[in-house]
Design a protein around this nucleic acid. Structure first.
Lengths: 218, 218
DNA sequence: ACCTGAACACCGTTCAAGT
DNA sequence: ACCTGAACACCGTTCAAGT
């Protein structure tokens, strides 16, 4: 009765893969609390290490947040690439698909999206490969616009400038929807994605070459 | 020599207008640190009161942030209204002016703009008149679109839906510029406002009625 | 090489007490 | 009615010490 319980399986002193464990714990905490409320001490608790342990793997809390943001940007580029792959030979369809992927990510992981785009990181520069990964999705966009121009379905002009306009539009709907700034009460549409589609459709018309036929689907 | 200095003008025990003094101090701290780094204790220090004094005027730190955001939304609506007043009888010009005012505010007060639109406040609802003031600028936009439709320079359709598309586009450039996501290195343009104008111009073309003449200025 | 525990200088919020 | 000072339960970060 009074005998002490067996030591059971004690956690090893060395975690083994603490860095990834911290990132996983932080990703979970992120979506439930937002980046500004995320506590490094709490993440350490969740990973069953002391509050000082994370400092062996990240020089600061911001560095951990940057690692999360980088995961988000990689996921964004992957989703967009999947959209491009899904509509081979149809640049306008590819543009629509990348736009939908962008909005979908914002709605699926709102806290992660805010971390990526809402000034949580003062600069991407000091965080290793973050600037490179963050720039990847824009490069995809420019390439798709250029492809559309070469086949004549996208109006001529600076591909970069048109990509910026497309990005701005899609980023705008994504953030306004995610922050619930757009009130869908009056309209018959209750689904945010329907609003996004409408805006993307209008953008589509602006990017399409004057003579080109309107896309048939959606 | 050893005589104590005269009491001079001691600060009165009652501040008099502490509420506004706190808001002013907070607005200053906001732009220099961002909303997430803003400390209530520091704001109190800046206003020369104890760290507990703010709680007589704001139930929480978030309530103070909400007061700042409300100021921002009021300023935004004012700026947009000024843009509308500056182009009487020219709805397309008014739309362009409101868009420029929107981007200008984002670039002039980046931290305030982030506070307003980047999920710092979990909801506008519990903060008095904030939802009403926050909605004002969108109503201006809808009214201007409707005015353009009635004179035939803006294409027909749901004014609300077109206002959403316009808002999304302008909001997108504003936030991307403010977060320095758009790299102006390659282009000849170093001025963010030039990028904004280009995007707004493209939006303009999307909103204009097919038959209407292109705007001559800018 | 990696992790712990104590320590430091902060926070937001509460509450009895002062004016 | 409004403000103060101590107190509580947290933070991020540092550093000597442990394994």
């Amino acid at each position: 009765m009074t005998a002490p319980p067996p030591p059971a399986r004690k956690a090893p002193y060395h975690h083994g893969d603490l860095k990834n464990a911290l990132i996983e714990a932080a990703l979970a905490a992120l979506e439930s609390q937002g980046w500004h409320a995320l506590s490094l001490r709490d993440v350490a608790r969740q990973a069953n290490v002391s509050h000082a342990a994370p400092y062996r793997h990240f020089p600061s809390k911001e560095a951990l947040l940057a690692a999360l943001a980088e995961r988000g940007f990689a996921e964004l580029a992957d989703d967009m690439q999947r959209g491009i792959d899904g509509a081979p030979g149809d640049p306008l369809g590819q543009l629509r698909a990348t736009g939908r992927a962008y909005v979908a990510l914002a709605l699926r992981r709102p806290a992660l999206f805010r971390l990526m785009f809402s000034g949580a990181l003062s600069s991407y520069q000091p965080h290793g490969s973050l600037p490179l990964v963050a720039g990847k999705s824009f490069l995809l966009l420019v390439a798709t616009v250029a492809a559309g121009q070469s086949t004549g379905v996208v109006r001529p002009g600076s591909a970069e400038q048109m990509a910026i306009a497309a990005w701005a539009t899609v980023h705008g709907v994504a953030t306004l929807l995610l922050e619930q700034q757009i009130h869908l009460g009056d309209s018959a549409v209750a689904d945010p994605m329907v609003v996004a589609d409408a805006v993307i459709e209008r953008l589509q018309q602006g990017l399409a070459a004057p003579g080109a036929a309107a896309p048939s689907n959606v």
